[in-house]
C-alpha cells in the first residue's frame, strides 16, 4: 500500500481524477476559477522548466502567453475554426518568438537574464499596446465565435463553462504529460545538470548556450499554448497578458508552490487564485495581502508550500 502511495504517478493520477469529476460537485463559478487555475498552472509549469529545472529566471513569459492569445484571436477573427490548427499555430508562433528572445538572452545569467527577458517582454507589450490596426490596442481583440470540435459526428461547442473546463482540462493535461516526459528525458537531466553547474556541463561537452535556447523555446511554446487556451476561455486577447506584472504571476506561483517539484507551480496557481477569491471578498487591495502572504511563504517554505509539505511527508531530499 505504502509502495503504491509512494509511486511517483500516484499523486498526479489522483489529482487528474479529482479534477475530472470536480465540475459534478462545485459551482459553475468555481468551475471557471478552476479553468483559470489550470491554464495558469500550465503557464507556471512551463515557466518552471526554466526556473526550477534549468536555473533561469525569466521575467518575460507574458510575451509568449500573449502571443499565443493574439494568434488565436486573430485566427478566429479571420474565420479559422479548426481548434487544433489554432492551438498549433499559437504554439509555433510562441516557439519561434522564444527562439529569437532566447538567442539573445541565454548567454546571460541570474539578474541579467531576468532583466533582458523583462526588456523583451516590455517590447512585446508595447507592440501589442500600440499596433492598433492588428491588436486592437489597449482594448484588445475580442473573440465572438469559439472553435468547436466534431466528435463521433457530434459538433461540440465550448460556450458553456463546464464544456470549456473540459477543453482546458484536456489540453492542459496533454501539455503537462508532454512536459513531464521532457523533464524526465535525457534532455531533462542535462537541464538539471545545467541548473546545478553550467560550467561542468560545458566541461563534459555540452553546448550550454544551445541547450538553454532549446529549453527556453520549449518553455515558450507551452506558455503560448496556455495563452491560446486563455484567449478561448476569456474570449479575448489583451495587451495586459504581455505586461510585466502578468509575467510575474508564474514567478509568484512557482515560488508559492515550489520550484523543485513538477506539479509545485500548479499548486501555486491554485493557492494564488483561492487566496485571491478569499481576499477580494474583504478588500480591493488584494495585491497588498498577496505580498503579506508571500513573505512568510518564502521564509518558512523554502521549497514552496507543496515542495516543503511533500518533503516533510515523504522525507525526500533535494531532487
Amino acid at each position: 500500500m505504502m509502495k503504491l502511495l509512494r509511486h511517483k504517478l500516484f499523486g498526479p493520477t489522483v489529482l487528474a481524477v479529482l479534477l475530472f469529476f470536480a465540475p459534478l460537485i462545485i459551482s459553475t463559478y468555481s468551475v471557471m476559477i478552476l479553468s483559470e487555475i489550470l491554464i495558469m498552472g500550465l503557464m507556471a509549469i512551463s515557466f518552471n522548466l526554466l526556473l526550477g529545472y534549468t536555473g533561469l529566471l525569466s521575467f518575460g513569459q507574458g510575451a509568449f502567453f500573449g502571443l499565443g492569445a493574439y494568434c488565436a484571436a486573430l485566427m478566429l477573427q479571420a474565420g479559422y475554426q479548426n481548434l487544433f490548427l489554432i492551438l498549433l499555430v499559437g504554439m509555433l508562433a510562441s516557439l519561434l518568438a522564444s527562439l529569437v528572445v532566447g538567442f539573445f538572452s541565454v548567454r546571460l545569467d541570474e539578474i541579467f537574464f531576468a532583466m533582458i527577458t523583462l526588456g523583451f517582454g516590455m517590447l512585446f507589450f508595447s507592440i501589442a499596446h500600440n499596433w492598433l490596426d492588428v491588436t486592437g490596442g489597449s482594448d484588445g481583440l475580442p473573440v465572438f465565435v469559439l472553435p468547436s470540435l466534431s466528435l463521433l459526428g457530434n459538433e461540440i461547442t465550448f460556450y458553456e463553462p463546464t464544456r470549456m473546463y473540459y477543453l482546458v482540462f484536456g489540453i492542459v493535461l496533454l501539455g503537462l504529460v508532454l512536459l513531464w516526459l521532457i523533464v524526465h528525458s535525457p534532455f531533462g537531466l542535462i537541464l538539471k545538470a545545467m541548473r546545478e553547474n553550467k560550467q561542468r556541463v560545458s566541461f563534459v561537452g555540452g553546448n550550454v548556450r544551445l541547450l538553454r535556447i532549446v529549453a527556453f523555446a520549449i518553455s515558450g511554446a507551452f506558455t503560448g499554448l496556455a495563452g491560446v487556451l486563455f484567449c478561448l476561455f476569456n474570449s479575448m486577447a489583451t495587451p495586459e497578458f504581455m505586461h510585466w506584472s502578468f509575467s510575474a504571476k508564474p514567478v509568484i506561483m512557482s515560488i508559492i508552490g515550489g520550484t523543485g517539484v513538477f506539479l509545485g507551480p500548479l499548486f501555486g496557481a491554485g493557492i494564488f487564485f483561492v487566496l485571491e477569491q478569499i481576499i477580494i471578498q474583504y478588500t480591493e487591495n488584494w495585491m497588498l495581502f498577496l505580498g503579506i502572504v508571500l513573505v512568510p511563504i518564502v521564509l518558512f517554505f523554502p521549497q514552496g508550500v507543496f515542495g516543503t509539505l511533500r518533503n516533510k511527508i515523504f522525507k525526500q531530499g533535494v531532487k
Binding site: L181, I182, S185, P186, F187, G188, L189, I190, K192, A193, R195, E196, V201, V204, G205, G206, L211, V214, I218, V318, K319
Partner: peptide, 23 residues
C-alpha cells in the same frame, strides 16, 4: 544536488548525442 549516478550519466548522455533527446 544530483545523485552520483546522475553525475556520471550526464557526460555519457552528451557523448552519445542524446542531450537533445526530449523523450
Amino acid at each position: 544536488a544530483l545523485t552520483v549516478l546522475e553525475n556520471v550519466i550526464s557526460p555519457l548522455i552528451i557523448q552519445q548525442r542524446k542531450h537533445f533527446k526530449i523523450y
